[in-house]
């Protein structure tokens, strides 16, 4: 099925099997292997990408359903020569070990910061309150990204560092 998706700013037109997930389209068709397959069932967050600005699990969505959408994967966030402040902060705080969940963590961070800005609530936000930037709040909001090396404290430190730098 012919599908056109803007990936990292570039329109990509592909003839896809309807069964192909957005994740497999990125990894197997476009050779963008930054988004990872950790569980393939929305249970780990390693496949997190931004679709029209919102973070989602790319493993649980069909590529054909994203015709016309704008997708940003880790490859569109920054490159080795031009790291995004969040990528730089992950490096500086040693916020990863094996690195397999890292692209998902970084994409999720970008989506999370936008959600915070927009006032999207979490279970850490008291009803009616505007979410703040405490450790507990970020931890809850980043709980959809499992890190089995459990670099969790370092990830929080990296997010706080990046947010300061981007402010």
């Amino acid at each position: 099925m012919r599908t056109t998706i803007t990936v990292n700013g570039e329109a990509r037109s592909l003839d896809l099997d309807t069964r192909t997930t957005l994740l497999d389209m990125l990894r197997e068709h476009l050779k963008l292997t930054g988004a990872k397959k950790g569980c393939d069932h929305g249970q780990c967050g390693a496949c997190t990408v931004l679709v029209n600005g919102a973070r989602i699990n790319s493993c649980l969505t069909l590529a054909v359903s994203h015709d016309g959408d704008e997708v940003v994967s880790i490859e569109g966030v920054g490159t080795v020569g031009r790291l995004h402040p969040v990528q730089q902060a992950f490096l500086a705080e040693d916020a990863f070990q094996c690195g397999y969940c890292t692209p998902g963590q970084i994409c999720s961070t970008l989506g999370m910061l936008r959600e915070l800005e927009a006032g999207v609530p979490s279970q850490e936000t008291a009803p009616g309150a505007k979410p703040d930037f405490t450790g507990a709040e970020i931890r809850e909001r980043m709980s959809g990204n499992i890190c089995r090396c459990t670099a969790y404290p370092q990830i929080i430190a990296a997010i706080q560092r990046a947010a300061e730098e981007m402010a």
Partner: peptide, 19 residues
């Protein structure tokens, strides 16, 4: 010091076996 392979890992360009 920052991880040697860190820039590849934070940009998703470190190829794991399947990649």
């Amino acid at each position: 010091v920052e991880r040697y392979e860190g820039p590849l890992k934070v940009t998703g360009t470190a190829p794991y076996a399947y990649e």
